[in-house]
C-alpha cells in the first residue's frame, strides 16, 4: 500500500513537471525566463517518435554506451586497484598520492586538449576523458572504504593461517564493497557528464554530438530529445549500479522501506 502511494507520488511529480512545461511553452510565456523559443510537449513527442524510427538514433546511442562502458570499466579496474594499493601500502601511498592529489582537482573535461594531442583518434580521447572522470571518485571511495575496515576481521583471517591474498579476497574486497559501490555510483554520474561533453566537443557520433549538432541547426525539439535520451541513459546506468550494489551487499543492515 505504501509502495503504491510512493509510486503514485513519483508519477504525479513527473506529470506535474511535464504539465508545467506544456503550460509555459504552449502559451509562449515570457517571464524573466523565456519559454517562447522552447518546443511544446507535442513537438518533442513528435520528434522523439520520428527519431526512434531511424537507425542513426540507435547508432548514436550505441556509440555513447560503448564509450561509457569502456571508460567506466577501465576506471573501475584502475580505481579499485589503486585505492586498495594506497590504503594498504604506505610505500605505494608515498609514491602515488602526491601525483594523484595534484591531478585530482583538474576537471576531466579540461583534459580534452591533452586527449586530442595524446591519442591518434577522437574515439580513444573520449574514452580517456570518461575514464579519467570516473577514476577519481572510485579510487578515493575505495581508499576510504579499505582504511575504514575493522582490523578485527583481518586478525581473524590471519589467525586461521591466512596470508595477504586470503585477507584481500576474504576481508578487503567484500568488506570494502559498500564503499566501492558508492564510488562507482558517483563515478558513473561524472562519466556521463564527461562523455556527453567530450562528444559535444570532438565527437562524430554519439548522443552528445547529435544533441549539440541539433542545437547548431536550430532544431530545438531534437535538442530536447537528446537531453531526454541522455537523462534516461544516465538514470538506467545509475539504477544498474545501485541494483548490483544492493544485491552484492545484502549482508548490510538496512532500514525497512529503503529499497528504492
Amino acid at each position: 500500500m505504501s509502495s503504491m502511494s510512493s509510486w503514485a507520488r513519483r508519477i504525479l511529480a513527473l506529470l506535474a513537471a511535464a504539465g508545467t512545461w506544456q503550460l509555459l511553452t504552449a502559451t509562449d510565456a515570457v517571464l524573466w525566463l523565456r519559454f517562447d523559443r522552447l518546443p511544446t510537449l507535442g513537438e518533442i513527442a513528435a520528434e522523439l517518435l520520428q527519431q526512434v524510427t531511424t537507425p542513426i538514433y540507435y547508432l548514436d546511442l550505441l556509440q555513447s554506451v560503448i564509450r561509457i562502458l569502456t571508460g567506466f570499466a577501465l576506471a573501475a579496474a584502475a580505481g579499485i586497484t589503486v585505492g586498495i594499493l594506497i590504503a594498504r601500502s604506505p610505500k605505494a601511498s608515498d609514491l602515488l598520492t602526491p601525483l594523484l592529489e595534484a591531478v585530482r582537482p583538474i576537471p576531466a573535461i579540461a583534459l580534452v586538449p591533452i586527449a586530442i594531442l595524446l591519442f591518434p583518434q577522437d574515439e580513444q580521447g573520449i574514452v580517456f576523458i570518461t575514464c579519467a572522470a570516473a577514476f577519481f571518485p572510485i579510487m578515493v571511495s575505495t581508499r576510504h572504504a579499505v582504511r575504514a575496515l575493522p582490523t578485527l576481521w583481518e586478525d581473524a583471517v590471519r589467525t586461521m593461517g591466512g596470508g595477504r591474498l586470503h585477507v584481500l579476497r576474504n576481508v578487503i574486497l567484500p568488506g570494502a564493497l559498500p564503499g566501492v559501490f558508492g564510488g562507482l555510483s558517483v563515478g558513473m554520474g561524472v562519466a556521463w557528464i564527461c562523455v556527453i561533453s567530450a562528444e559535444m566537443i570532438s565527437g562524430d557520433f554519439g548522443v552528445g554530438y547529435r544533441t549539440w549538432h541539433a542545437y547548431t541547426i536550430v532544431d530545438y525539439p531534437a535538442v530536447i530529445v537528446g537531453m531526454i535520451t541522455i537523462g534516461a541513459l544516465g538514470w538506467l546506468a545509475s539504477a544498474a549500479i545501485e541494483l548490483t550494489g544492493r544485491r552484492t551487499t545484502r549482508w548490510l543492515p538496512r532500514a525497512e522501506g529503503s529499497s528504492a
Partner: peptide
C-alpha cells in the same frame, strides 16, 4: 586459533561459510 571478544565473524558470510573459512584457507 583465536576467539575474539568483539564479533570477529565476517558479516557477509553465512554461518556455514564463516565456519568453513579456516578449512577453505
Amino acid at each position: 586459533a583465536m576467539i575474539f571478544q568483539e564479533d570477529g565473524l565476517l558479516p557477509w558470510r553465512t554461518v556455514r561459510r564463516n565456519v568453513e573459512l579456516p578449512l577453505r584457507i
